[in-house]
Nucleic acid binder design. Sequence first.
DNA 1: CTGTTAGCGCCTTCAA
DNA 2: TTGAAGGCGCTAACAG
Lengths: 370, 370
Amino acid sequence: MKKYKLSKSREESTPDTAQEREGEARLLRKPTMTDVARLAGVGTMTVSRFLSGTATVSEKTAQRVQTAIKQLNYRPNELARAFRGQRNRSIGIIFPYLYDPFFADCAHAVTVVARERGYTVLMTTSDEEPETEMREIELMLQRNVDGILLIPTHRRESRLTRSFFGRTPVVAFDRPIADSSFDAVLVQNTAGARQMVLHLIEHGHKRIAFMGINRNLYTIHARLLGYRRAMQDAGLREEFVYECDSEAETERIMSAMLKHEDRPTAIVTSNNLATRYVLNSISHLDLRVPEDFALVGFDDFDLADMIQPPLTVIRQPSLEMGRTATNLLIDRIEQGEIPEAGNRIIMPVEMIVRRSCGCKNRKAQIIPVS
Amino acid sequence: MKKYKLSKSREESTPDTAQEREGEARLLRKPTMTDVARLAGVGTMTVSRFLSGTATVSEKTAQRVQTAIKQLNYRPNELARAFRGQRNRSIGIIFPYLYDPFFADCAHAVTVVARERGYTVLMTTSDEEPETEMREIELMLQRNVDGILLIPTHRRESRLTRSFFGRTPVVAFDRPIADSSFDAVLVQNTAGARQMVLHLIEHGHKRIAFMGINRNLYTIHARLLGYRRAMQDAGLREEFVYECDSEAETERIMSAMLKHEDRPTAIVTSNNLATRYVLNSISHLDLRVPEDFALVGFDDFDLADMIQPPLTVIRQPSLEMGRTATNLLIDRIEQGEIPEAGNRIIMPVEMIVRRSCGCKNRKAQIIPVS
DNA sequence: CTGTTAGCGCCTTCAA
DNA sequence: TTGAAGGCGCTAACAG
């Protein structure tokens, strides 16, 4: 019998029969391919080939290997595989936060597609902190993920360059990366925001407020642009543009607005969070929608049709976006070459007209945005 | 100069100066510790020690290593570290789905705590499919995660045993695993549900319906139990227990209920999803709350206070649960021993009394559940 | 304080 | 069809 050197973790005396060895190995540590090979009386390569199917293994040998695997309850060590080869079959994704239903939907879609295509997902959050984001990216690169899906926190983070990522494919999600060599999956932010305003103008509103949050976020900025464009095209003044960074701040802004002589008669919000704040203030200040303010929000959410009045919104195809971005990333990984210039995929949004805008529909109407 | 064997990926001729080597390495492949050591003119162990701080390195040498690292833009290969050592500094977590705000909140908390404690999170979803769940668990074990956080899909999945997981710590989350050797972080499902019913009984309701979903889910089952207990204690009949598996199904159930001679006057829902369905039906059938039906839901959600009337709910501490479970799991990992019997941590819920139950509060009242 | 050796589990390469 | 050797990048253990 061949000599078998014991490492520290295998300090028991070597039993003589395969049976005993099996029992022991099971208790002490995870069985390895070598264990399987020994038990089956073959070389490790035979086991490897059996598992990967890269070469034919004789019926009889296959049988033996199979049995040994079962007996030992052997599972190939993915870590060792990943370590050895280039491909890891894993992708990393960094969300600002997951408690926003939009991102939660995206995250769900990512896990589904990744599973379909045989990839594992390393997921984390940045809390919109550039430093956290950078650290998490570094960590993922150090873990040799095959690709990264990133919702970049700042509009102009100069450290996010191609050379920083080396040969690791990156797809920007929801917000682009300044360096245009990256792929990006975005939505019609500007067109969507423009549509919200146009709709309110059709209702006869002339003084329309834009409730944003942090303007450094690409999406907010792009939506503000849409608002501006619509207002300008209609010859209206854009005098009511606010940043609602908290519930308290929003309530202050709304109270102030109310006292304004020529106060706005309609509000558009820049995203779920802003919508949340505004709805909250509306409730606290006992305002009626759409009588006191007409309201249109960017981002649909689960119960938007259940609040009173049902909220008119711009809907982003969150699941679809997650799917598209993940597929794009994995395509890039598998085709193996980094493109000179990234693709920019702009996904369509649609307006769901309910009643907060002043419409009287009993049922929601869906209007595509162009 | 020492000979240096080139693998396939390093097919260029070896340049002679460190400078040249550096430029080349940067382009062709990730620099390794050996590269750093060579450039700094030291052994790999010195670099390793410098990085980990396990032993003192002379000022001068440290300086040289530091410079080399910078020059090569070297990043330690976490995969190799994980592969070599036992610790991987990663945990796996499997959610049924992420689009439920409850799970999304939990997921967020998990990523935050994991980051704080220096762990990477592999996250995936099972869509409540036991087979998918098993496959994903296997995958995580094969990737040698240090621990697993699991929201088990079925109440009695017999394959989830200690021996299946080997020495990998597992914490069951939101729902326990049948095998009681696992730790579990749960909430007061039964007490919470009981409280919902008690409150409605205080409002004078006698015929109260329970709207569940799939009864194989532990949480739904436990909440049904609470409902039963409260009804029985009050001497009431539990004749209206339903499974609302879809919007359509729920609407059918609700219509039927309406026609019932002694129809229920109040409804409790078993979770976010059921609440969603019921609210939907209420809207479609043009019912008023609480006049036609009083309503209390299990699970708070972001805009529960914004719908009309504001919804009275049982709130689960989702972020807190995610934090607790992650900390518990990492504690287990770091203490290194698998307990004989798992801890069962039951987190408190509270009732947030708004107006759908029939109360007239202007502001929400929070009532602890015991 | 620093370097050498060896090996983690797997698979590529080469040889039989 | 099968096996042996070697190395991926890192660090524990043991020298110097």
